[in-house]
Design a protein around this nucleic acid. Structure first.
Lengths: 337, 337
DNA sequence: GATGCAAATGCACTTGTGTGCAAGCATCAT
DNA sequence: ATGATGCTTGCACACAAGTGCATTTGCATC
């Protein structure tokens, strides 16, 4: 009936006692390249097996790098975000990292709290997938020797790495796709969440269209989801002359838009309406949609991320832009020529 | 040009020196209820702020509980899995836990590796969302004082907690829904991944139908995804007498099934075909589908999970079953009466 | 001014690991 | 036989925290 209750984790000392060797021998047995005789190694492994010993990585992390990488993310249920988290966790794990996930809101305060957590756990690096940390906070992270990597947030923050997709190319290509399909009345559907990426796609699309002498109706009905896309279509086609060529800055928006166009206004694609999305979520390939869109090269981004983390010296600001991959399906007319 | 390079994290000692107090004072400043004068507290906080000091939770975890919870999960991109991860991470964070995510395959070996990681980082608890750990591995976790919680894996493993949805009720209700709609030829669509949950839904549906004197065609065309549902429909309607009432054990299967039925065979719902799914993923509520299904009460499951973790004593095996919530939409005919 | 009491502070130990250093020991060549 | 060499091994320290215990400080009361 002793009172010690909670200390069930077996430590190296216990193993050492059982094996009849010093604690150092145990430590060395589990360290690559350390000098241990075959005999003691065997004894240690046997004792460890019987006791169910596992090296305490927390304690190990006191001396050297923790090998922990923090993933700060919001809106995890969004298909595209889920895909990103999936790819990154896989790649990071394969590189021997351990992932701490922080599911946060996008507002400044909750991102700040997340960043602080990150520091509390001595994460080697913080990867921000949503929301934008303040410059001051990033400074703190950097001062503590932590790498900060922002993914798809094109904010001009110094000291951290930026991985992002080429939104400019996407905006331009989307326009050319629609023009080649012979569309006359263009619209752009976006959300009220003014992320840098979304703004960039919008800006370029509108600019390029303007240069070509075409006007663009811009519509934002709410957050970046299916419902907002749906609502945008209701508003646009509720007017006298609805668009015949639309770029939705996100696939989710596009799918909502498509459903409203079909079910509420009886339009058919790609005859009455051409539609381009962005992200290449699984749902876009479903038989009901077959959306033409752009894929984000997450695998390549993940590889680059791992490469960055491998660099011991946190070389200042870096920026890497990845080309989106056009995915041709059936929501845009093939070009006339 | 010293060689020490990597030790940028500021520790309590540095803060103590700067503030002109002892290291204990720093520790006490950041410990609730410890005895520190207002004066030193102020000095410590000031120095901490200037240096960007953050308490090292890894070191703290050496003495007491680590507050780390491991989430072992596969197939994160599946909408339902993403939702589950989202809800659980939110709830756990709110309860002051830190989440380590382990993205693994479902095969035994990779789950085993995941469980070991969990022990290495002294997680207070491991929550398994996919894949099933071996009994021996769970024993190890329990021996180390770790709680093990399995979610939606109805495996008869002793020593760990089980949270799962009432698959029996789902199977039974699905049948009654279809019978009330007047369906004559029943089919059940499942996947080749024989998860306990899926098997249970199948078993009960078939049994109840048999008791009512109706036969059921069972179809499994591949993994648990959209494509398998699509393929299942092609096979079932390729025969002479296709079904007019189908229970898909998963929403993703159901959506694929629905698309094939419509686009390949020109069927319309709910007139030619009644369809019931399970999970209540967002996509099922889209205008193109409006799938009748069952929702999993994830919020309640998350609350219960947090409650379990709060219990200091890991009270042996526990089992808690949650009722799925029927979601009426438009893929099933309203009952005739 | 001396005494008593409570609050504040510092010392030293604890947690579990990795590793430099020196001592121990065996093997081998001279 | 003896010195040299090389492999093992244990001691002791470092890492960053929390905390029991003893000591010091501050203040009020007699």
């Amino acid at each position: 009936m002793s009172e010690q209750e909670r200390r069930p984790f077996v430590s190296a000392r216990t193993v050492a006692e059982r094996a009849g060797v010093s604690r150092s021998a145990v430590s060395r047995t589990f360290t690559d390249g350390a000098s241990v005789s075959e005999e003691t190694r065997r004894k240690v492994l046997e004792a460890a097996g019987e006791l169910g010993y596992h090296v305490n990585h927390l304690a190990r992390g006191l001396r050297e790098r923790s090998n922990i990488v923090c993933l700060v993310v919001a809106d995890m249920t969004t298909p595209i975000r889920a895909r990103l988290v999936d790819v990154l966790t896989r790649k990071l794990q394969a590189a021997g990292k351990v992932i701490m996930i922080i599911n946060t809101g996008t507002d400044e305060e909750s991102v700040a709290a997340a960043l602080r957590q990150t520091l509390n756990y001595r994460a080697d690096a913080t990867v921000v997938l949503s929301g934008t940390p303040s410059a001051k906070l990033i400074e703190t992270s950097l001062a503590n020797g932590q790498q900060v990597i922002l993914i798809n947030r094109d904010d001009p923050l110094t000291g951290c790495h930026n991985l992002s997709v080429d939104n400019e190319m996407a905006g331009r290509e989307a326009f050319f796709l629609l023009r080649r399909a012979g569309c006359k009345r263009l619209a752009l559907v976006t959300s009220t969440a003014s992320t840098a990426s979304l703004l960039e796609r919008e800006r370029v699309f509108v600019e390029v269209a303007k240069e070509a002498g075409m006007a663009v109706t811009v519509m934002a009905a709410g957050p970046t989801n299916y419902a907002s896309g749906y609502e945008s279509a209701r508003r646009l086609f509720g007017r006298s002359d609805g668009p015949d060529g639309v770029f939705c800055v996100t696939d989710l928006l596009a799918l909502g838009f498509m459903d409203a166009a079909r079910h509420e206004f009886g339009l058919s694609l790609p005859n009455d309406l051409c539609l381009v999305g962005f992200d290449d979520i699984d749902e876009g390939d479903w038989q009901s949609y077959k959306l033409t869109t752009f894929a984000q090269p997450f695998a390549a981004m993940g590889d680059h991320l791992v490469e960055l983390l491998g660099q011991t010296v946190a070389a200042g600001t870096g920026r890497r832009i990845f080309e989106p991959i056009p995915i041709w399906r059936k929501s845009v007319r093939p070009s006339a020529d």
